[in-house]
């Protein structure tokens, strides 16, 4: 049995007086596809943001790929990680955002090649070759020279996925990547993610309200409420036979709101 690629150990996240995560622990195995579901404010997005080092933690430890994320060894003891350590750790992780966050002043191709050239010192020719492969994979090779403003939401999100993949992270985080899209554009993004899950052995963590997709996509589903994991298990078990009352209530509401499971 291999080691977990992510090991979250008793983390606490506070914003002032508000405690968002209260002693949360979880593990993710390499290659696992994980869906994090739950009501808004339950802390699921915060976990992704913490893993991407967009937020700090108030307490606890996180291990990613065998190394501490927010701590480093110095003279035999663990101290808070400095910028250089975080920089090294971020290489392992990529993230796709709800609002795409493309760079509006750069064309699609430059959006994808920028980070590999700057952070990995890749030559332009090599970075562009790789970017074109990725754009081809997300079905947007013909848009390489377009500006982000000329694309639809679904296309922007597919570019954002290609951009994150260009750094070849071991772990990919997807934060409600279809929530900002018009309904008819959701499927094209989900299709790319299905393809990605089928073709790569990347570890993927997905925060989503698309229960049908979570059901098909995930190896394991975690239901969050108020900063805690209320229930976890295989998609069939969580969606068909939820044990906890809070999970049942949540799923009923989601179905009533018109989401298919």
């Amino acid at each position: 049995m291999s080691q977990p690629i992510i090991r979250i150990d008793n983390i606490v996240k506070r914003y002032g007086p508000l405690t968002v995560l209260d002693g949360l622990s979880m593990e993710v195995m390499p290659g696992e596809k994980l869906a994090l579901i739950g009501p808004s404010g339950s802390g699921k997005t915060t976990i992704l943001r913490i893993l991407m080092t967009l937020e700090t933690i108030s307490d606890g430890f996180i291990q990613v790929d065998g190394e501490q994320l927010y701590h480093m060894k110095k003279a035999g003891s663990l101290v808070a990680a400095d910028e250089r350590h975080l920089h090294k750790m971020r290489e392992k992780i990529g993230m796709v955002f709800q609002h795409f966050n493309l760079f509006p002043h750069k064309c699609v191709l430059d959006n994808v090649t920028l980070a590999p050239m700057l952070t990995k010192g890749m030559a332009r020719a090599a970075a562009e070759k790789r970017a074109m492969e990725l754009l081809d994979m997300v079905g947007l090779a013909d848009k390489a020279k377009s500006m982000p403003a000329q694309l639809s939401g679904g296309q922007k999100q597919r570019v954002a996925i290609a951009r994150a993949l260009a750094l070849s992270p071991k772990i990919m985080l997807f934060d409600e990547v279809t929530s900002a899209l018009d309904p008819e554009l959701v499927e094209e993004v989900l299709n790319v993610m299905r393809k990605l899950a089928a073709e790569t052995d990347m570890t993927m963590l997905l925060v989503t309200h698309e229960m049908g997709f979570a059901h098909d996509f995930a190896d394991r589903v975690l239901f969050f409420d108020r900063g805690k994991i209320v229930e976890e298990g295989k998609p069939e078990d969580i969606f068909r036979h939820p044990k906890q009352e809070r999970t049942q209530t949540f799923l009923r509401k989601i179905i009533a709101a018109g989401h298919r499971v």
Partner: peptide, 21 residues
């Protein structure tokens, strides 16, 4: 914030983020 966060997720340094984005 969204642009800055994209820079962090793409592992740019603060200087690179300022200069290029």
């Amino acid at each position: 914030r969204e642009q800055r966060e994209a820079c962090i997720a793409l592992n740019l340094t603060r200087f690179q983020a300022m200069r290029h984005i």
